[in-house]
Amino acid sequence: MATDSATHQFPLPAILEYPSSTPPELITQGAEGRLYKSTYLLPSIPCALKYRPPKPWRHPVLDARLTRHRILSEARNLAKCRREGVPVPNVYAVDESAGWLMMEWIAGDPVRVAINEWLQRRRDDERAQGRTGDAVVEGKGEADADLVALLRRIGAAVGRMHKVGIVHGDLTTSNMMLKPWERGKEPANGHNVESDGLLEGEIVIIDFGLASQSTSEEDRAVDLYVLERAFASTHPRAEKLFTAILEDAYREAFKQAPVVLKKLEDVRMRGRKRSMLG
């Protein structure tokens, strides 16, 4: 039954076995669940279906309890964000006993891909001018304006999410999408008409699988710390710039930011982990 993970074919969840005009497509397989692309109501409305398959090693009672709880909590947190104006995918449908959650399909690339492409292009430009291309991105000058604007949008989005009492639990640049602006909805300021458009778009936070409702400074600070660590390991050249701008934009978007940022300093000092072990 177990085959090589690269060629492993997973059985489809029951919901995707009904005939449809667009065949379902497996997008990713994480530890917790699988993400499929399908359509909702009309063939022209794409959707994302998150499926949490049963875990056969868990006691069936425990498995059913956990799956149900997690699907419902993810749907509730998404709905709450949506209601309060935090940019997240819209929830279309839920079946917690079958273990799936159907959401709006967000077009565009993850922020991670966009930033890496942008950094690569910048490196190529520097090399073309005869420099090493390993320079730290300082965020000064015209050339870095796009990245600074993007980081500001990230900080603002996280700030708004915290403001409504949700912590994400797994903030990374892979869990943020860069959704192309809808026509006529581009922001009046901060939108660079001259640019190549690589870093343009609305930040949409995705994957609320580990999210919870919390207003504690500690939880919020850990959320920021996880994002900071994830950013440093995926885009080390822009690490310094990231911290400064994120904090700035976060502060503007969220009134209680100073307390959280103070706590963040403590979290940084000890790391996410406790230092004691017996």
Binding site: M1, A2, T3, S5, A6, H8, P56, W57
Partner: peptide, 8 residues
């Protein structure tokens, strides 16, 4: 059981 399902 878990490892087998992941192909390991």
């Amino acid at each position: 059981y878990m490892a087998a399902e992941r192909g390991g």
